[in-house]
Computed example of a mutant assay.
Amino acid sequence: MTARLSHAVTSGTFSLDGETHEVENNVWVLGDDEQCVVFDAPHDVDTVLELVGDRECVGILLTHAHDDHVRFAPELSEALEAPILLNPADGEVWKLTHGDLPWDDTVEDGDMFTIAGVNLEALHTPGHSPGSTCYYSEELGAVFTGDTLFQGGPGATGRSFSSRETIEESVRERLFALPEDTVVHTGHGPDTTIGTEKRAAQGDWL
């Protein structure tokens, strides 16, 4: 297996419901020497371009449509000549940032992508937003969770388009069903594992 994972952190803002917060976002690029995919498009196009290098980017896989994850998606798409993929359940959230500008293709639960000889399965995990989607690779023993699951538990709710009950159900039924040694690559902050978060949730909300 020749797949490798590249990572960087970008800084910027997240705005929703009339509030703006400073945030740092993880950028993940998965591929080999020839091709790659990018997860999300936060804050800084140049940082993503450096991670991609001279490889062909075959897709920008959006975990959800909050502005700190998609604000630069059209610009990044143009620079990389790569399509933007988003779960259509996040269409209204996308419009908050990009209006009627369309994304390129849809991601549905169960969709499979192959890059650098490894498979990525799209897992629809609503709650943080209606279309939040994680990407699981059995071969890598890893899942890219965006803002659905962090070190310390499920992502934030309480804002427009979000539901605590729904995100807990998504994590419980979709993510906690993965092997416990699965590494969780998050949208913000450090990695964790499924087992670590599953044990932490016991007696709390699980």
Rank of each mutant, 00 (worst) to 15 (best):
S77I: 02
L96C: 07
H124M: 04
T193K: 09
L101Q: 15
V27W: 12
P74G: 10
L85A: 14
R164W: 04
H21Q: 13
Q202W: 09
P42C: 08
Y136A: 07
G153A: 04
F72Y: 14
Y136Q: 06
D204W: 13
V70S: 01
E78V: 05
I84L: 07
L175F: 10
A201T: 02
V118W: 02
D100P: 01
S170Q: 06
H69V: 01
G203D: 08
H43S: 07
V27R: 04
D105C: 05
S132Q: 13
P88N: 11
L96E: 15
A82I: 02
P190K: 11
A177Q: 09
N119F: 02
D109M: 10
T63K: 09
D100A: 14
T13N: 10
E81M: 00
L51F: 06
T193S: 15
T148L: 06
V58M: 12
W28A: 08
H188D: 09
S6C: 09
E173F: 05
D109L: 06
D104K: 03
A201P: 04
F72D: 10
D111V: 06
T125W: 09
P102Y: 12
T196C: 01
L61T: 02
E165W: 05
R4L: 10
V183R: 14
S160M: 12
C57F: 04
E78T: 13
T148P: 02
T20D: 07
L96I: 08
G131N: 08
R55A: 01
H43D: 13
L140M: 15
V23K: 13
V38N: 08
V29W: 03
H64W: 05
A122M: 10
Q35I: 03
N87S: 12
H124L: 14
R55W: 07
V48L: 04
I60F: 00
G189A: 10
E22Q: 15
T157D: 11
F14T: 02
V183N: 01
A122T: 09
F144E: 03
I194V: 15
V107H: 01
E108M: 07
C36Y: 06
Q202V: 13
